[in-house]
């Protein structure tokens, strides 16, 4: 037991002082869902495939609407997107006060899709 006690005195701590030190995100982490609308054709495939029905696409008005609080972060829409404009950031959704859906149009684009890094 004494050995364990001494070992615990000198070994580094197992936890991270979180807000000060943040672990870098993994490359494939499915964080927030974003749409780079510049490449979006508003085809509606993502809305059709989504298992939690969190995406609605209006093809006439060309709007792409996401309810991030129904999203289950499965990434099915990202796999299905024919224009490859949907992507996940590596950051998780932050806490919010009000549940406001994301509505994107051609005039009001979201984030730009980052270039894929070296594999």
């Amino acid at each position: 037991m004494i050995r364990t006690v001494f070992k615990n005195f000198v070994s580094p701590r197992a936890t991270r002082p979180y807000p000060i030190e943040v672990r870098p995100a993994f490359e494939h982490t499915r964080g927030e869902l974003e749409n780079d609308v510049s490449g979006c054709t508003f085809c509606g495939v993502c809305a059709k495939k989504c298992p939690s029905a969190c995406i609605t696409v209006n093809r006439k008005e060309k709007t792409w609407r996401l309810d991030p609080f129904s999203c289950v972060y499965c990434g099915i829409c990202v796999d299905a997107c024919p224009g490859e404009c949907l992507f996940h950031t590596t950051d998780h959704k932050k806490v919010v006060l009000h549940k406001i859906p994301v509505v994107l149009t051609k005039e009001d684009p979201g984030l730009e899709k980052p270039e894929p890094g070296p594999a």
Partner: peptide, 10 residues
């Protein structure tokens, strides 16, 4: 799990 599949549990 997170590094290979994207999510921690599901």
């Amino acid at each position: 799990n997170e590094a290979t599949a994207g999510n921690r549990v599901i």
